[in-house]
């Protein structure tokens, strides 16, 4: 159902950090409803790609188009409006540790709430029902008023997902969401993300360390190596030799 413009598009994108080139001349299109896994070893440029897609970083060269807008050309305010449509989940969760769970989940509203409403909600939580539904969906409704740093790693990642649910974006980005979790927790989180994407038709882009999860849960796999796209194919089309090449260490 490719309707005209892709939801994400990278045109000749290069990202440089000092003398280190993280991404080199990337061209890429992601369409609404796609479920994409970015795979590769550490330093391949996966996190940089995620940060370019949600507007945290801007490219050194080339253009990043999101929902039909060139992010480099947008003023701050319009950029924020685009960012509301993109929810991100991180490896280290990036939650505010000493706030209660409810406030971290409600942070998903911040793009729509006024400053005043945000301030009042910190004192007396607002839209508790929405937050409770989101937390129930990720299976930890009972933690609503718990302090976030008292939760386990897996539970904190669920809080981060609940925040994205409340934000209700068009696309979900997940930057190595399972690298800090044990295998059982990892599988649960990956399944949950896939289920969410399937039920709501939201685009899902996940960067992953381990190839296994990418093959089992995603329809499209993009292999990154040293800042370049090595392959971009469906799991069936990825051969063992391609995977070997992807993780090969430099001699």
């Amino acid at each position: 159902m490719n309707l005209g413009t892709p939801i994400f598009e990278l045109k000749n994108v290069t990202k440089q950090f000092g003398s280190f080139q993280s991404l080199a001349n990337i061209n890429l299109q992601i369409w609404a409803g796609d479920r994409v896994a970015l795979v590769g070893s550490s330093g391949a440029g996966k996190s940089t790609m995620i940060n370019l897609l949600n507007g945290t970083l801007l490219p050194t060269q080339g253009e990043v188009w999101v929902l039909g807008h060139n992010l480099s050309r947008l003023p701050r305010k319009s950029l924020r409006q685009i960012q509301r449509q993109i929810g991100t989940i991180y490896q280290q969760f990036h939650l505010v540790d000493n706030l209660r769970v409810i406030h971290n989940v409600n942070a998903g509203h911040l793009g729509r709430w006024s400053f005043f409403k945000a301030a009042i909600s910190l004192i007396s939580p607002m839209e508790v029902g929405t937050a409770a539904i989101a937390l129930n969906q990720v299976g930890i409704a009972e933690k609503l008023y718990e302090r976030t740093d008292r939760l386990s790693g897996g539970q904190q990642q669920r809080v981060a997902i609940a925040r994205v649910l409340v934000q209700n974006p068009s696309a979900i980005l997940a930057d190595e969401p399972i690298s800090s979790l044990d295998p059982e927790r990892s599988r649960e989180i990956i399944q949950m993300l896939r289920q969410l994407s399937q039920d709501s038709g939201k685009t899902l882009v996940t960067s992953l360390h381990a190839f296994e999860y990418a093959r089992n849960y995603y329809e499209r796999i993009i292999g990154l190596r040293q800042g370049r796209i090595l392959f971009d194919a469906s799991p069936l089309a990825v051969s063992p030799s391609m995977v070997e090449e992807l993780y090969r260490t430099e001699e």
Binding site: R80, I86, Q92, L99
Partner: peptide, 28 residues
């Protein structure tokens, strides 16, 4: 800085980042 950047990435304004990201972590 990372929780602040994650709030910024979901479209929060600077004053909202102050409320939800900076104040709770510094006040105590």
């Amino acid at each position: 800085q990372r929780p602040l950047r994650s709030l910024q990435a979901l479209g929060a304004t600077n004053s909202q980042i102050f409320l939800y990201g900076i104040l709770p972590r510094t006040l105590s």
